[in-house]
Design a protein around this nucleic acid. Structure first.
Lengths: 210, 210
DNA sequence: CTCATCCCGTACGTTGACGTATGGAAACGA
DNA sequence: TCGTTTCCATACGTCAACGTACGGGATGAG
């Protein structure tokens, strides 16, 4: 049984490739099923049918359904942490960095669905652990960005939580009632409004307590 | 088979009682299971065990699992639309009305979990329909409140969507990473910040486009 | 050519939940 | 007291998915 490394026939040379090619394909399919059908859609036989094979294939690559879930979660966490930093780290200005984060968060509808599906399956301990870690990472990163804007520790925490909650909620509203969600021109106005409201300009007013 | 009215031995007199007593008990249990375990937790035999009975009882009250789901959704929608208006309609000042709505939205953690669980199960057509209706109702009501504040049609739509998304997101963040969510004193500051940011005071500045 | 390993298909046993059939106990009216 | 209605338990068949056992074709090494 593989599950780790066993020299896949393709992609020779870079022996840094740890996971078998098919393993990742199964994991991707699992994430796809998760985004659309929830956690129970991550089922061996349905996925096998979807991929045009049978269980026999699956149980050669994985010891169990739980192993597939673990692999899918690992893949998701990697995507989530890498994509979150991509195109953001290069921005030096903290304001522009936050703007970039927001644009990114609103750009990938599919990633939003995936997060919501995983968050809804947090009852599963393995899922809950990863969701909590990813969510905490995002919040901490946003918090650092707000601190870089000059906000105090408390203010940064409050504003970053505020902003993060808003964008998570946007994904939720967008999914639950798409026809109520602003599009095109309205969305641009909506986005601009949120930006102006949620991220204080470098020279703007700083509000402490009342 | 009942499923509608059949003169429950208790609560005589008010024959306006449409659903049997036990039917509502099953529906409540179903909502409870939904909040904690998701849609698949609404299973006949597990619920029966939880209630200390067997399937025999269930299939006397309901023709199928789907009927239970429908009943639970009906109950949820009723709760959601009634509770949303309770303690809000009496407020005449639109500002105070919105504040009341926000306080209410943040007060019931359990109701938040229920909404998130149902929203996550929107793949089910019956669930999706109700979720969409409830969500749209909330948004429209909030929109009316913002219009009553004097905002234009567009501004009211944007601000109400903004505010609604934020509070939905709060429930999500609160559930996914509870230890990162502000509590006690920090929460009060957080709440105040959101209020000041999201609901313009009657005499405050009105921002149109840039 | 032979053989061993890789990858997958097939057949089987098991489990959990759905739904049905039927019996039975308790309450209630005549 | 007797029968009917109400509510629930038990037993059964079905189905879908998990996991296992085993076989078999392909492919590369010797």
């Amino acid at each position: 049984m593989p599950m780790s490394n066993q020299k896949p026939p393709g992609a020779r040379g870079s022996d840094a490739v740890k996971s078998s090619l098919s393993v990742e394909a199964w994991a991707e399919a699992a994430l796809d099923a998760l985004a659309t059908g929830g956690l129970d859609a991550v089922a061996v036989e349905p996925l096998a049918r979807r991929l045009g094979v049978t269980k026999g294939s699956f149980y050669w690559h994985f010891p169990s359904r739980e192993a597939l879930l673990r692999e899918a979660l690992k893949l998701w966490e990697r995507h989530e942490t890498i994509d979150a930093r991509a195109g953001v780290e290069e921005m030096t200005d903290p304001y522009e960095r936050i703007v970039r984060l927001f644009k990114q968060a609103n750009s990938s509808y599919k990633a939003g669905r995936l997060y919501l599906a995983l968050a809804a399956a947090s009852d599963d301990p393995a899922v809950g652990e990863v969701v909590k870690r990813v969510s905490a990472n995002r919040l901490n990163y946003l918090n650092q960005c707000y601190r870089a804007l000059g906000l105090s520790e408390l203010d940064a925490r409050l504003w970053s939580t505020f902003a993060y909650a808003t964008f998570i909620g946007n994904q939720q509203v967008h999914r639950d009632t798409p026809e109520q969600f602003p599009v095109d021109e309205d969305f641009r106005a909506y986005f601009k409004l949120m930006l102006k409201t949620l991220v204080p300009r470098p020279g703007g007013p700083v509000d402490g307590e009342a």
